[in-house]
């Protein structure tokens, strides 16, 4: 089933992307073009098939590694904030948030 321009603007908003009308048109045709081949997936019956997340779990059980609870990370505020577009008094700055 094909997407509409409404879908495109809804998705763009979810993704926080601003598309001009012409971009939206272009995006629409490209994404619908792609979903043309996506529909082919329906031909394969996947009932009862387990989704594969970590690919190597296809042959062995891959489980979460847990680390010891040690606070060993040295504070590096200057390093972690050195690329901030706007910062003051050790805080990242953004346009005022209205609750």
């Amino acid at each position: 089933m094909a997407l509409t321009l409404e879908d495109i603007s809804r998705i763009a908003h979810l993704a926080r992307l601003e598309l001009s009308p012409s971009d939206s048109e272009k995006m629409l045709s490209q994404i619908n073009g792609f979903f043309g081949i996506v529909e082919k997936m329906e031909a394969i019956d996947t009932d009862g098939v387990e989704p594969l997340f970590h690919p190597v779990s296809a042959i062995e059980d891959i489980t979460l590694r847990l680390r010891d609870d040690i606070a060993s990370e040295p504070s590096n505020r200057s390093g972690n904030m050195q690329n901030a577009p706007a910062a003051e008094e050790g805080l990242f700055l953004v346009p005022k948030v209205i609750e």
């Binding site: 609870d69 040690i70 606070a71 505020r77 390093g79 972690n80 050790g90 805080l91």
Partner: peptide
Amino acid sequence: HSKIFSRAPLGFGAEPNTQTSALDC
């Protein structure tokens, strides 16, 4: 002692962004 996914310390009322690792940012 440390955060759920990083080794940064926990603590209330510290100087802003002093208890953050690269991951927390």
